[in-house]
């Protein structure tokens, strides 16, 4: 097994431990251990913040600072499909319509 392969398996093991523990924790420890106060408030927004911080750089990863304001911005498959997805979900209220529209735009603009 190559180092890269081993690394992926280790990440899978890591994800398993984290997700399994989080899904089960209050099935095995008392509910009174739930976080409260400021920590509870912070935890409420952490998922949205983490997902946003993860996705945003990926959407812009093909672009350079000098592309700002140029037509390259809208011809980029990543950015264009993301914008279409956001607009379609806001208009239709359906996440699946948004993903479908975004995928379509992405596949059309993808070179090759």
């Amino acid at each position: 097994m190559s180092d890269a392969d081993l690394r992926v398996w280790l990440v899978i093991a890591l994800l398993t431990v984290i997700v399994v523990v989080m899904r089960n924790v209050f099935l095995f420890v008392p509910r009174s251990w739930q976080p409260r106060g400021l920590l509870q408030q912070a935890l409420r927004y952490a998922p949205l913040a983490a997902l946003s911080a993860l996705v945003a750089p990926e959407i812009l990863s093909n672009l350079q600072p000098q592309d700002l304001g140029s037509a390259a911005l809208l011809a980029d498959p990543r950015l264009a499909s993301a914008l279409v997805l956001i607009v379609v979900i806001q208009l239709s209220g359906s996440p699946f319509a948004g993903i479908a529209a975004g995928m379509l735009v992405f596949l059309i603009l993808l070179p090759g």
Binding site: E58, S81, L85, F96, I99
Partner: peptide, 13 residues
Amino acid sequence: YLGLLAVLAIVVQ
């Protein structure tokens, strides 16, 4: 990147 579009849909939701 298709997988990231699915994650973006979660963020929008």
